[in-house]
């Protein structure tokens, strides 16, 4: 763009930039307008919502701690679901990661199989998996564990697969040159390189799974969600408040533990 000396009108953005900004703003406004006008909302309810929410909160204080034993037990169950499911998912994810990494997969068919497993596991939410497994195994912890395993598999497999794709190829070449078998090359040249990622993503996923385990009970798959749902159905709001506080404690403690472990291990 040629600028003449006399052309001194200053503008912050070039024409194209201004146009892009304007168009983006317009698009956002249009999206908001469309959503607001066409959404199926009963507006009087919306205006009433703050009062209703305030009312709900009022009914929650003071928290009722009489069910604290049951709540503690449910917390432990939640922790168990998250831990057991993460533990198994981590090991199941390793072969999937191996076949879905471009540089280790045996052939194209296995590559696509691996990718299919990752995508289907990752795209279906834990709660939808839980719905399915509650229908299969019946309500309970088992359905929750399996649901979390299925969801974690894709997450862990994807991140581990990416770690495998990013390894340094040179030690692999060197070990192949010594006449080591494929299994030994994996053990000595690939495993040590992905161990840090392995621990990091396992801890990260455990933390996420702890949060997800708190809601499994809402579809009947065990953990603290079961008694939360029960208390809500009984309209026992003061117990609900205690359960919510317990969940905050669990989640924050889990996050702290995860952060500590990450520092220790890596």
């Amino acid at each position: 763009m040629k600028q003449s000396v006399a052309d001194r009108a200053w503008s912050r953005h070039t024409g194209r930039q201004r146009w892009v900004r304007f168009a983006s703003l317009l698009a956002v406004a249009a999206a908001a307008g469309w959503s607001l006008t066409s959404i199926d909302i009963i507006w009087p309810w919306v205006w009433d919502a703050p009062a209703q929410i305030g009312d709900l909160f009022k009914r929650m204080v003071p928290p009722d701690v009489s069910a604290i034993r049951a709540i503690t037990w449910a917390l432990i169950e939640t922790l168990n679901i998250a831990t057991i499911a993460t533990f198994f998912a981590v090991f199941l994810s390793l072969p999937v990661a191996y076949i879905s990494a471009q540089n280790t997969t045996p052939n194209r068919a296995t590559l696509w199989l691996g990718r299919f497993i990752l995508v289907s596991s990752r795209s279906v939410n834990t709660l939808i998996w839980a719905l399915l497994f509650v229908a299969i195994f019946g309500p309970g912890v088992l359905a929750g564990i399996v649901a979390i395993m299925f969801r974690s598999l894709g997450f862990l497999g994807k991140l581990m697969g990416e770690a495998i794709e990013e390894i340094d190829r040179r030690p692999v070449e060197a070990l192949e040159a010594t006449g080591a078998s494929r299994a030994k090359v994996i053990l000595y040249a690939i495993v040590p390189q992905v161990v840090p990622t392995f621990f990091a993503v396992s801890i990260l996923r455990w933390d996420i799974n702890l949060r997800e385990s708190t809601v499994l009970g809402l579809v009947g798959a065990g953990g603290i969600g079961v008694i939360l749902q029960g208390a809500i159905d009984m309209l026992d709001w003061r117990t609900v408040a205690t359960i919510l506080l317990a969940i905050i404690v669990l989640v924050i403690a889990g996050e702290a533990l995860a952060a500590w472990l990450r520092k220790k291990v890596i």
Binding site: R170, P171, T178, P192, P196
Partner: peptide, 20 residues
């Protein structure tokens, strides 16, 4: 593999496994 066992190779980039 048996033959490769008897052929030693030294690399420009050393090709060691760093974390071992």
């Amino acid at each position: 593999r048996k033959a490769r066992r008897r052929i030693g190779m030294i690399f420009q980039g050393f090709n060691l496994v760093d974390r071992l």
